[in-house]
Design a protein around this nucleic acid. Structure first.
Lengths: 151, 151
DNA sequence: GACCGATCGTTGAAAATGTCAATGAGTTAT
DNA sequence: ATAACTCATTGACATTTTCAACGATCGGTC
């Protein structure tokens, strides 16, 4: 609980290095992860389990394979994440509609409830992390990142 | 060397999830890392050792502590990275000017040479990763990410 | 000038993550 | 039917992250 949220501009940020988009992404992500995980700890979640829960709540009925691809994780990691959430009664595995090999991850009512409150906390985190941007700028970033990913 | 670079838009990208900036950053970063590391392998570098080498070449005379803070890595990881680069004659540790505890990481002439060629490869990676963006859009992203980080 | 707390680089160990191969069940194509 | 393939799962293995401790050095205080 330190009083000031001083934003320190490091000396090294002045070099050409700070134009590497990869580096900017990594830094932004590292900073965001820390705050997100801190905020999610209150709910017994981490960034990843939150993402899985979020997708389970989305109505998109994701299979584990889709989760793995979308979150850029190994399928075995999805197993562990879903195991945990399922063990806590937040999601359930349902057999795939057309393909009985795949398992659809669905949120339970309790999972939906937890997600709703966690989502609010996450939005606050995001707002705080990007507090130096205007609403328009934030929307622009969002749109451009999406375009970079999916055209 | 597969023929087509098909950009697949996953089904899950349609949900509200895809508006989470944290998630977009993570995906973009994961995709970028993979390509960057692949390109850097040719030089015996990885993203991190490249960043260290790059900062050692910047003229900013970074100390190891500054590298750790700037790259969001534990100081002990910097030790390992610098050990490796130093062992290959690409950088050297110099005693801090005013504080004899700190060590400044400087590139050797050979380090500068390697960095120059690696930098070209990295720029190509970046261009490829953001090929769906116009030059203006890319500049905008760069500027906004910097603003988000340092105001 | 000698202490005291703090910082820097370094080491090493523990925990968390990432990566990969193998497997059983189920699918699709031939 | 058979063969090749995909899905979720397991377990082994490597890499990365995280942390605590240490000697050397610094800055401030008596």
């Amino acid at each position: 609980m330190s009083g000031h949220d001083e934003v320190v501009i490091p000396r090294l940020a002045e070099g050409a290095v700070a134009n590497d988009i990869g580096l900017l992404l990594a830094k932004l992500r590292a900073a965001g992860s820390e705050f997100n995980n801190k905020a999610l700890a209150e709910f017994g979640l981490r960034e990843r389990s939150y993402s899985v829960l979020r997708l389970a709540c989305s109505g998109l009925e994701p299979t584990q394979r889709e989760l793995a691809d979308f979150l850029a994780l190994d399928p075995s990691q999805i197993v562990a994440l879903v195991d945990d959430l399922e063990g806590r009664g937040l999601v359930s595995r349902e057999q795939g509609r057309t393909d009985r090999r795949q398992k659809i991850v669905l949120a339970t009512p309790e999972g939906e409830r937890l997600h709703a409150t966690a989502e609010a906390a996450m939005q606050e985190c995001e707002a705080r992390q990007f507090s130096t941007l205007t609403a328009d700028e934030l929307a622009t970033v969002r749109a451009l990142l999406r375009k970079a990913l999916w055209g």
